[in-house]
Simulated scan of single mutants.
Amino acid sequence: MSYETEHVRGVDNSIAPITGVPTFTELLTNPDLATLYTAIRHSPAITAPELVDLSTISKKTVYEYLGKLAQAGLITEIEDESNPKRYEAEKFELQLTIRGMEVSITPELVAVVAHATEYPVIARVRDEHGLVTFALAHDMIKSHSVGDITVRQIASLTDLSHGTTYDLLEALYDIHDLGDDSDPTTYTPDDVVDEDDDLLTER
């Protein structure tokens, strides 16, 4: 039997404990933790020693983070006789509603945060403009990769500067391997400053 309540959907008789809620938040602010989760997500059945070899953080920190992720229910040990233990990542979607604005936190956003050290614009947008703007710009840049929106429109709808928008666009094109093998050259900050407004929605 399954049922739904005001706050919980998809409830059945095998409810797995979810603890360590701060870990979900830390995935969005700690690139090392985000990198570890993303590595497990992209390489199911990976072992802790393999993660240590791949990681730029200490062995002690890797094991500490594995404990955090496991406690939060974000990763699980594969149940077999393997030694060392093998891990797989759990899918998740954390939905937040603040002042009528809904934002979903997903592994895809976490994968972007994992690159925040390599691309400082990621942390700058997240920290200076907030999570909603960060997630909105992320989704709009994916739309840009298929020609649905321009850099100027993204900047106007997110209130990011044209330069910041373009820096973030270049970062996400690299991270998500968007578009073809060439760089995104449809617009640059100088190209779009003097364009006429042509927004998808009225401001």
Rank of each mutant, 00 (worst) to 15 (best):
Tyr166Asn: 12
Pro49Phe: 03
Thr61Ile: 02
Lys85Leu: 09
Ala48Asn: 03
Lys91Val: 01
Glu93Thr: 04
Asp139Ile: 08
Ala123Gln: 11
Glu26Tyr: 06
Tyr37Cys: 02
Ser55Lys: 11
Thr61Ser: 07
Gly147Arg: 10
Thr97Ile: 12
Asp194Ala: 12
Glu90Cys: 02
Ala171Tyr: 04
Val113Arg: 13
Leu178His: 01
Ile40Gln: 04
Thr165Asp: 04
Asp167Met: 09
Tyr3Pro: 04
Gly100Val: 14
Ser182Asp: 08
Pro184Ile: 10
Glu50Lys: 00
Pro31Phe: 10
Thr29Gly: 08
Thr133Ser: 13
His144Leu: 11
Tyr119Trp: 11
Asp148Tyr: 12
Leu66Glu: 01
Asp174Gln: 07
Leu51Met: 05
Val121Pro: 07
Glu4Trp: 04
Asp80Gly: 10
Ser14Gly: 11
Asn30Ile: 08
Asp194Ile: 10
Ile98Lys: 10
Leu157Lys: 09
Ala34Val: 13
Glu128His: 14
Leu74Gly: 04
Gln95His: 02
Asp127Glu: 15
Glu6Ile: 13
Ser14Thr: 12
Ile40Gly: 05
Gly20Tyr: 07
Leu66Arg: 01
Ala135Phe: 14
Pro44Met: 00
Arg203Cys: 05
Ala89Gly: 03
Lys60Pro: 01
Thr5Trp: 01
Asn30Asp: 15
Pro49Ile: 03
Ala137Asn: 10
Ile175Val: 14
Asp159Gln: 11
Ile75Ala: 04
Ile105Tyr: 03
Glu202Arg: 13
Thr164Lys: 12
Glu118His: 13
Val8Trp: 06
Lys142Gly: 09
Asp198His: 13
His129Asp: 09
Gly163Thr: 13
Gly179Ala: 00
Gly100Asn: 14
Val21Phe: 12
Ser104Ala: 12
Leu199Tyr: 15
Asp181Lys: 00
Leu69Thr: 01
Thr106Met: 08
Asp198Ile: 04
Asp180Trp: 00
Thr165Pro: 06
Ala111Gly: 15
Thr117Phe: 06
